[in-house]
Design a protein around this nucleic acid. Structure first.
Lengths: 220, 220
DNA sequence: TAGATTGTTAATCGATTAACAATC
DNA sequence: TAGATTGTTAATCGATTAACAATC
């Protein structure tokens, strides 16, 4: 309820899952959904669902649950997904191309409107229907098109330098797909997709599991 | 120190960053590094670094810090990155190709040894030097090559079905790049790269920041 | 009204951080 | 030895969960 406190990150990260489920419920023409039902489908606790949804400021109704349509709007508004966000993608390599080709981003209110790369062979071409521009044009185009979000998908080595350029171009939020830890002004919002961290969790667990199994095989 | 308790996930996720820094230190021929120095470079607290590193079971030395080479080995052992892990990648689309082309995985002890796809146009071809097989061959090849890790990069709609097949093929650990929440036996280890969650954090913060700035513009 | 589901307040749990004795 | 840095134990912090009164 307290709209001045910043929202807990773990809760914000769960909101897209609620949104997805609510959209499915809307397609099924259900008008209300309870926290118990959401919790069951997403394998969470009902109380956690209620706490998370309260972030949006929209209250549920006793006996009924949450108004599906209203809650969809409330979550989208909270996340800034109510209007499509135009973003530039910098680095039209393998990963960059993959991200542009992923249509699912439209569900997240994200539209990658142009690509930027230093490779002259790529500049001027189109990837998945989006034009590739030279990095030299980034500042000019970002200001002109009022783009304030950037997806960084260059090599680790180039990441810091390109990020600095993005900031000069007026980009406020950077979705960082590189392994680099960027050093930028505090006012710039950076969210990193840390594949190494994710793989570390998976492979350490696998490693333990395999050790356990080998132990069991030897009759321990 | 208690090696029976499972490791806290946030700590495990930080280990690759330590590893990367330690490797850099080794290249610079430094033999010891203190928690204070690691903390400074990674923007963490020294005490957190010490707690995290203690997970590996390797102790530091008072006055000196941590033995760089020994700690690299200890972290790699802990994560199961001491020997290269062979993995299959299922779904040779945009994202799948990008992941195969990303050479950085070698630093994480991961080697994607083969690709699988249902698209007949792709089967038999090579992507970034790896052969693409039909999904029909997954079970046979996984057993024969003793592969127990799989990277899932198919469409959201196919994810559950393909994951079931992976489990039938004896795959124990699944790195899930799809938006699907997989329902699998509890013994299967799943780690999901949740792009929607990550974007939610970024765009909700951006949204707040822009609202704030617009407020400031209007003289509030 | 009775009953189901909500939001609030308090308790629990786990991760982070602080204080400090132990160590080389 | 003196001093820097460690690992341990305790305190703090934040997120999750439990209990329950409020509500339609």
């Amino acid at each position: 309820m307290d709209h001045n406190r910043i929202a807990p990150t773990p809760a914000v990260r769960r909101l897209p899952a609620y949104l997805q489920l609510l959209r499915k419920a809307m397609l099924a023409e259900e008008s209300y959904i309870s926290s118990a039902r959401i919790a069951r489908e997403l394998d969470l606790e009902p109380i956690q669902v209620r706490k998370d949804l309260s972030l949006t400021g929209l209250a549920g109704q006793p006996r009924l649950g949450f108004d599906v349509k209203a809650m969809i709007n409330a979550i989208e508004l909270f996340l800034g997904w109510d209007n499509t966000n135009d973003a530039f993608l910098i680095g039209a390599g393998n990963l960059g191309s993959a991200l542009v080709g992923y249509n699912g981003f439209m569900d997240f209110g994200l539209n990658i409107s142009a690509l930027f790369d230093n490779d002259d062979d790529k500049v001027g071409s189109e990837i998945h229907g989006r034009k590739v521009y030279s990095l030299d044009q980034l500042i000019d185009l970002a200001w002109r098109m009022h783009v304030n979000m950037g997806v960084l998908a260059v090599s680790a080595g180039a990441a810091q330098q390109v990020a600095d350029l993005m900031v000069d171009a007026g980009i406020v939020a950077i979705w960082n797909f590189t392994p680099a830890k960027l050093k930028l002004p505090a006012s710039v919002i950076v969210e990193r997709v840390d594949l190494a961290a994710s793989l570390a969790v998976l492979s350490s667990r696998l490693s333990r599991e395999l050790t356990k199994r080998r132990g069991a095989e030897n009759g321990n």
